[in-house]
Amino acid sequence: MEHQLIISIGREFGSGGHEIAEKLALHYNIPLLDQNLLDEIAKEKEVNVDSLKEMDEKYTNKLFRRTIRGFSSSPQDNVAMMQFEYLQNKAKQGDSFVIVGRCSEDVLKDCKYMVSIFVLGSKEVKRERVMKLYDLNEFMAERLMHEADTKRKRYHNDFCEGKWGDSRNYHISVNSSLLGIEETTKILINFIDCFCNSSDHKQSLAQ
């Protein structure tokens, strides 16, 4: 990449958001950050990554949490904050990357070179995909989708002002079920290219 580019991807479970993120990272030749974000943090801090991953993208019950002067007793909160801080530092350093989830559209909202995407899908198509990917029956696939999306939603809405999946919080929201993952990726590449070539983007890079 010639200039900095950060692509933030939020996604519904089963929508193929993660696969789209992989394809975008490959296309723009920039790293993909998802669960490996904690690997990087753990390596940098020389700590055990497993204990961090256990707390990744999880919601804390408010009854088991207390906040004092910005410090939270919740391990989940602290792991989330650690990731947010890491992402913000990476963005400040001028790194380009694709980031999946982690409230990134909100955490990096002040970054001018960030484009935020939310990938959703129709229930039937998502269910089919989840059944195939995880070898599940219809009932179990729907249950997994519901549980995963509920967790993501609670985690997101706990840290961000905007609601998870609300199109007003993202630059573009796209339903991947209509055209499929390949075509949706192409549309997104087109969108991102336009963003990179936009006068605003060029101006901010020139500053």
């Binding site: 256990e54 207390r66 004092i68 410090f71 007793s73 391990p75 602290n78």
Partner: peptide, 21 residues
Amino acid sequence: IGASANVVGVATAAREGYVIK
């Protein structure tokens, strides 16, 4: 969550990667 010192201690450790469950 019982006292302020606990919250601050647990959070300080966790922010450096030492999660206390």
